[in-house]
């Protein structure tokens, strides 16, 4: 009953149980945090706007993104993945979501930022529906924990419009 093997087994089981319990508690403690992030995105310029030879519209724009995501960070946060996506509806597609810019925030000190950038990923429509198109810009964030459940949420900013003519 009290051999070395049994004691080692009991100790290992106990250690793993405690570790699992601590991970679960750390993950659960994220629920106690109620974040209040803020964000603002401005379209400063439409750099160019054209129809590709294959018939799809493509636009390039310059964005100014200001955000304060400091309240998302807790002791169980490894990093926050943040991105800005353009979202719009076309006759063919009920939803088009195109990521324009993304970034990884490694710590709370970097969570209040201001960036001036042209779109990192190409803004291409499936078809030719972008002239005069109204779209939303949405700031999404995905919180990656040190362990446990991942969180995600977003701020939707409506009321952007693309020009009527190619340029």
């Amino acid at each position: 009953m009290h051999s070395f093997g049994y004691r080692a087994n009991a100790l290992l089981t106990f250690a793993v149980t405690i570790l699992a319990l601590m991970c679960a508690m750390a993950s659960f403690s994220d629920n106690l945090n109620s974040p209040t992030p803020s964000a603002q995105v401005k379209v400063l310029n439409i750099n160019w706007f054209q129809k590709q030879p294959n018939g799809n519209d493509e636009v390039s724009m310059t964005l100014n993104i200001t955000a304060d995501l400091q309240s998302l960070f807790t002791w169980n946060t490894k990093q926050v993945f943040v991105f800005v996506a353009a979202e719009y509806e076309t006759p063919k597609n009920s939803l088009n979501q195109i990521s324009l810019w993304d970034g990884i925030i490694p710590s709370k000190e970097h969570a209040k930022f201001w960036i001036h950038t042209s779109n990192k990923y190409r803004f291409i429509d499936q078809g030719s529906n972008l002239r005069g198109k109204e779209f939303n810009l949405t700031l999404h964030w995905h919180v990656m924990p040190k362990t446990g459940k991942m969180f995600a949420d977003k701020i939707v900013m409506p009321g952007y419009r693309l020009p009527e003519e190619y340029r």
């Binding site: 993945f81 991105f83 006759p91 063919k92 597609n93 009920s94 939803l95 088009n96 979501q97 195109i98 990521s99 993304d102 990884i104 990923y121 499936q126």
Partner: peptide, 19 residues
Amino acid sequence: IKVHERQDTGEAYILTKGD
């Protein structure tokens, strides 16, 4: 990073990327 979801069938066209 990109999603286009069809109006009629609901079929999604998805593009992915590694961080």
